[in-house]
Write a protein that binds this DNA or RNA. Structure first.
Lengths: 350, 350
DNA sequence: TTGTATGCGTTATCAG
DNA sequence: CTGATAACGCATACAA
């Protein structure tokens, strides 16, 4: 069956032209007379030639048309997060304009797997910034590939796509303070790659390697320096539920819970309801992200809405610029406050 | 900065060995004396050489280590579906064992974009089977690439990963019939690429180009030949909600709704509740997929659970086999019934 | 507008 | 265990 595939040389011979001419017919980079074009097309058809071999073309051109996206998580976990999903969609859009495809890569690739330095990519997008991401950065640097970091700090020379996580989270905290809350708990995303869940009182910024977590926590502390802290492993409803249960077991019980993501917030709300308490009458709950958070009907979450698709598109635009040898500036996107009905004044002191 | 990257030839010269020897040091395919290995490693380090250029390597080897996955939808839409997400995770796992990465491709790629025939892929996974998928199949065939189809029929010679959609849906229908239901509505996924929503009474199997939709509908009709049919555009909670509203406007009102996906079912349940009716007392609702369907607490959906991750893994295994020149058999996975509490006997006739 | 020559960076093969 | 050689399939600069 696949004895040997026809090459452009075969096509050229069949059509009676030079290989370079045939090549040009397919790339369209140079004018070709209608007559020879036809001959080449026909020859190709008769030989079952369907266009240049992408491998050879990319060696010659020095470009593969592929952009690598590196995830810290398993793919399934990453895409479980609606923010990531929407962001990837924006990224795919922007890259489609560039004519590039998206190659999914993990940063913990084992021996023999396709890795950042065995993958034919023209550029790389790093998401988040765990410790392992640093290694990824080294690889990318030494290969001289353009790289953009979303929600993480990769040092100078690497454009970033950032969000005003601290300011946004502080805005939520202010909102709660103005409602009269004084005793709040914050439920955070993972602090580091170890991903352990539980109470973490005296944690300092230096111990937190995940930028998003650190910045949002700082925002809370700007307003509530003494907020108790419950750490989760990742942004999942179930994790939020467990956190909510832990919070309810606290004495005294806080009057508000500031969750670092909508998914976590949904879990917290559920836990509160299942315990026979009411949101927001007994406890207020806030989220972060502004995804459509199902599952707490008829309530809607008080949250900060982030432009997730724009984040992806911005990354794509930055990549486009870098491939054109321009050095794009880092981009700072902002969140907007959305008042839902999960926040209200605290219940009267008992 | 990037004046010119070092090549393996530079490294070999620096180390005082032949290029082929240096190559072997990196690939590990042939024994090399410890001494020369060291020399090569050092030479590489001093030149900043980080390993073979993937583009050149893949041209030479004839393999890129990349598997393309073709989606009919936008990426964001595809990953909005939890079944797809989980399946992709399984696929990524299986391919990681193979050492391959996942390239995301769309089947409606425009001019200049990276397409199935300009992408350096070793094999292809097609998901679903819209009409456009047929074109994708032609391309893949003419390039002689191994291809696997998930939940679609690509004709002979193409291994399929299938689900017992018809039998599974019939099992649900039987369950409802045994509870005493006689008047049911089924809320289906999209019939074709046009994706129009609304009632579709006399639709025949021939008019349905989406295999999943057709098969599940057939399952319903095996038990309820006269079931009314409401078509949605895609598997989303909101679509299910709209469908639910349409169903409630029907006269007479059915006693049960068979949704073709859990997400649709959740939407239907919400619509019913918002209309002031109860599930399952007034109307029973069933789903399909067995994903963790949030949003109808405290109920859990009566549904058919499908092995989504296994679907992805099976596809990966099939690809692995084909790349080893074996022709894998098609794989038929089965769903299992899960009784939740959204189904109950119909209310007494009024 | 077409053809000629050259090299992109590797790695398989085989002889030593 | 090491080295010489020959592709892999194409696209570009340049000459005709």
């Amino acid at each position: 069956m696949s004895v040997r595939r026809a090459t452009i040389a075969d096509v050229a011979r069949e059509a009676g032209v030079a290989a370079s001419t045939a090549s040009v017919v397919f790339s369209g980079k140079t004018p070709v007379s209608e007559q020879t074009r036809q001959r080449v097309i026909e020859a190709a058809a008769s030989l079952g030639y369907t266009g240049p071999d992408p491998r050879a073309a990319s060696l010659r051109r020095g470009r593969s048309g592929i952009v690598g996206v590196v995830f810290g998580d398993r793919l399934g976990t990453a895409f479980l997060d609606p923010v990531t999903t929407v962001m990837m969609d924006g990224l795919a859009d922007a890259l489609a304009d560039l004519g590039s495809g998206l190659l999914l890569l993990r940063d913990d690739a084992a021996e023999g797997e396709l890795t950042l330095n065995s993958a034919p990519v023209d550029a790389v997008v790093l998401i988040g910034c765990s410790t392992r991401m640093r290694d990824a950065l080294d690889v990318v640097r030494s290969r001289g590939l353009p790289v953009v970091v979303i929600e993480g700090d990769a040092g100078e020379g690497v454009p970033q796509i950032r969000l005003d996580n601290r300011e946004g989270q502080a805005a939520i905290a202010h909102h709660l303070r103005e409602l009269g809350h004084e005793d709040v708990v914050t439920v955070t995303l993972a602090l580091d790659a170890r991903r352990e869940a539980g109470w973490a009182e005296g944690v300092t910024a230096g111990e937190i390697t995940v930028d998003v977590t650190r910045d949002r926590l700082a925002g809370v502390r700007d307003v509530f320096p003494d907020a108790r802290i419950y750490v989760t492993r990742s942004s999942l409803v179930d994790e939020g539920y467990a956190a909510g249960q832990a919070v309810l077991a606290q004495q005294p019980r806080p009057t508000a819970v500031i969750a670092q993501s909508d998914l976590l917030a949904v879990g917290v709300v559920r836990a509160i309801r299942d315990a026979g308490l009411r949101v927001p009458e007994d406890i207020s709950v806030t989220g972060f992200d502004g995804i459509s958070a199902d599952g707490i009907a008829p309530l809607t979450l008080t949250t900060m809405v982030q432009p997730a698709a724009a984040k992806g598109r911005a990354a794509g635009a930055a990549i486009t610029a870098m491939l054109a040898d321009a050095m794009p500036a880092s981009i700072h996107l902002t969140t907007t406050f959305r008042r839902g009905d999960t926040s209200a004044p605290p219940p009267p002191r008992s």
